[in-house]
Design a protein around this nucleic acid. Structure first.
Length: 606
RNA sequence: GGGGCCGUAGCUCAAUUGGUUAGAGCAUCGGACUGUCGAUCCGAAGGUUGCGGGUUCGAUUCCCGUCGGCCUCGCCA
């Protein structure tokens, strides 16, 4: 007589002291652990998504069940039927179900398990590669389940919020045309049109604009996006955006609804009240003070401009740079003067690894007269008044370490931003449990591209310039600000968006400025350009990175930890072992042949 | 494509300056045990030190190449 495992009476995390006496309880799940006390008494911890319940088998009352129980091993799947009894003195305070146990009368083995390649126990570590290969085992563990549950809650919370705000959830194509984003596309060959390709969407950008032109007014989508670029801890080849677009809005409308949605999610998922509106920081300020367009403002250590005094020092590198019109900036690490030589040498090597020439630094120490003086490193190049002027310019105190970067603005930003974030992390200067939401606004519209010798856009070519900057489009493109904005949280870019151009004449002007010919524009964006001519409402929107939000709310270090089936840094899936080769017949049907070099390489491997 | 770290038993790690038979904990297997709960006790089994080459009397250790993983720069408007 088999147990009706499809008639589970509850999950393994449900039963409490109040349930003691229930005689016909059916549980089903995995054997988390077994403790065999000889022929007479066996304990099985049964696990499912809900939790753990201890099952007791006693040979005196249930000899058949006990006999089977002795054969059970970790990760076997069983159904059990029995009675809820009190544990009496033997309560386990670590378990929510620790006051009771199931006295099992009948057990049914539904499926046996091989010995797992790593232990399915929360406290046992396994390397990530192995966890990905056996993700279905990793998923049985608490941390993974909690991350996926958190992600689920975030999704539901966003959906509920935007639904109540009047947004329609609309699906857009996955097989589509290459979009205007700058990333490399994943391509899908067409069988019906040999030699032609679909692209997987880097985002639903143009479709959501078409939805606005289509009069849908408010669009949102939990959208899968695909970009064939190199990966990072916070980048996967496929990822999920909370994508939205609104008609008849300007910047303030969009920021308002998005920050309220984020506050809503944080309230529902984390129980945290996030104050709105969020702080807004102009892009130029962010670059000046933090050297980053996604500053972590939970801690200070701002970038300090010391170009003036550095230019008057005797340090040749500083003086020559300043004479060339370059700059010198510094960060002041509080208490950093204690840092041993070995560590500063290590930092120097590391910062050289990202392209810096070196790491000029000096320590601020107490002199014989008790007043601050500079020591070690480049201290000797500061003499006379420049010592006091440097200390004043940086606000450094005795015991601090001053680190410098010299060169072009972009390089100084890159190097000091790296140093600031690296030092803050390693020296535990980042306050935990703080959520510093930030809007980065007033971003420049154009960036001069030295290689292509023309202005290129920082966003996509449909971004609206600031109205008051329109007359600078031709005279001073570098000064034109975009109606675009980035959402930043604790140094992580959560999302970005913009108000779009809805005027065909302006759009044409933009293409011209960007060096995009009329032919090219039509070839790439025909459908949008056509639509713009049939009555386009002013509109704009934004997309939030769901994976990063889930990562932050789960306290994870990587979005792989909040993704059910992620890929490795080479975009390989250890579980499915994709990408993989396909049957030559499939290529035939598509009219595709591999390049000779690729064929040769594969033949060499085989 | 560049820089950095890593790869030793199923898992997590150790192995002195390059030196005897590469160890430990957990897991696994066998046995014992009526109250355990990350059970305990006794015992066993488990290794191409990622792979290939080099230096050496001798390589887990040093060098070169290669494969894989992670972090990162470029890249990702």
């Amino acid at each position: 007589m088999a147990i009706s495992y499809n008639k589970r009476t509850c999950d393994c995390g449900t039963l409490r002291a109040a349930d003691v006496g229930k005689k016909e309880v059916i549980l089903a799940g995995w054997v988390n652990n077994y403790r065999d006390h000889g022929e007479n008494l066996v304990f099985i911890d049964l696990r499912d998504r809900g939790g753990l319940t201890q099952c007791r088998f006693n040979v005196d009352t249930d000899p058949e069940a006990t006999k089977i129980a002795r054969t059970l091993r970790k990760e076997d799947v069983v159904a059990v039927r029995g009675e809820v009894i009190s544990r009496g003195e033997n309560v386990n305070p670590k378990l929510p179900t620790g006051e009771i146990e199931l006295s099992v009368h009948e057990v049914n083995i539904l499926s046996k398990s091989l010995t797992p390649p790593f232990e399915v126990a929360d406290h046992v570590e396994a390397n990530e590669d192995l966890r990905l290969k056996y993700r279905f085992l990793d998923m049985r563990r608490r941390p993974m389940q909690q991350a996926l549950i958190t992600r689920h809650k975030i999704l539901q919370s966003f959906r509920g919020f935007y639904y109540r705000e009047g947004f329609l959830e609309i699906e857009t194509p996955i097989l589509t045309k290459s979009t205007p984003e700058g990333a490399r596309d994943y391509l899908v060959p067409s069988r019906v049109f040999p030699g032609q390709f679909y692209a997987l969407p880097q985002s639903p950008q143009l479709f959501k604009q078409l939805c606005m032109i289509g009069g849908l007014d408010r669009y949102m989508q939990i959208a899968r996006c695909f970009r064939d670029e190199d990966l990072r801890a916070d980048r996967q080849p496929e990822f999920t955006q909370v994508d939205l677009e609104m008609a008849f809005v300007d910047v303030d409308n969009i920021l308002d609804v998005v920050e309220r949605s984020l506050a809503h999610v944080w309230r529902e998922v984390a129980g945290v009240e996030v104050p709105v509106p969020f702080r807004r920081m102009p892009y130029d300020d962010a670059m000046r003070d933090y050297g980053s367009d996604k500053p972590d403002v939970r801690y200070e250590m701002k970038l300090l401009d010391v170009t003036e005094v550095a230019g008057r020092s005797e340090f040749k590198i500083f003086r020559e740079a300043v004479e060339k019109g370059q700059m010198v900036k510094a960060i002041c690490l509080p208490g950093g003067a204690e840092m041993p030589r070995k560590e500063t040498d290590g930092l120097t090597a590391e910062i050289q690894g990202i392209g810096a020439g070196g790491l000029p630094l000096c320590k601020v120490m107490a002199g014989a007269d008790g007043k601050p003086e500079l020591q070690t490193g480049i201290a000797k190049f500061f003499t006379g008044q420049t010592v006091g002027q440097l200390i004043e310019a940086t606000g450094a105190k005795i015991g601090d370490l001053l680190c410098f970067a010299v060169g072009r603005f972009a390089d100084v930003c890159k190097h000091l931003n790296w140093l600031r974030t690296t030092l803050a992390e390693r020296r535990n200067m980042i306050p935990k449990d703080r959520w510093e939401f930030l809007w980065i606004v007033d971003m420049p519209f154009f960036e001069w591209d030295d290689q292509a010798n023309h202005w290129s856009f920082l966003h996509h070519p449909f971004t609206m310039p600031h109205t008051e900057d329109l007359d600078k489009l031709d005279s001073d493109p570098g000064a034109v600000r975009a109606k675009s904005y980035d959402s930043v949280l604790n140094g992580v870019e959560l999302g970005s968006g913009s108000v779009r151009i809805h005027d065909m004449d302006l759009q044409k002007r933009m293409f011209k400025l960007l060096g995009i010919s009329e032919e090219e524009a039509h070839r790439k964006f025909e459908h949008l350009l056509t639509a713009l001519q049939y009555g386009a409402p002013p509109h704009g929107g934004l997309a939030l990175g769901l994976d990063r939000i889930a990562m932050l709310l789960s306290g994870a270090d990587s979005i792989r930890d909040v993704t059910a089936f992620p890929k490795t840094q080479k975009a390989f899936c250890p579980l499915t072992e994709c990408p993989g080769e396909v049957d030559p017949k499939q290529l035939d049907e598509l009219g595709i042949d591999l390049a000779p070099a690729v064929k040769a390489k594969r033949a060499g491997k085989a």
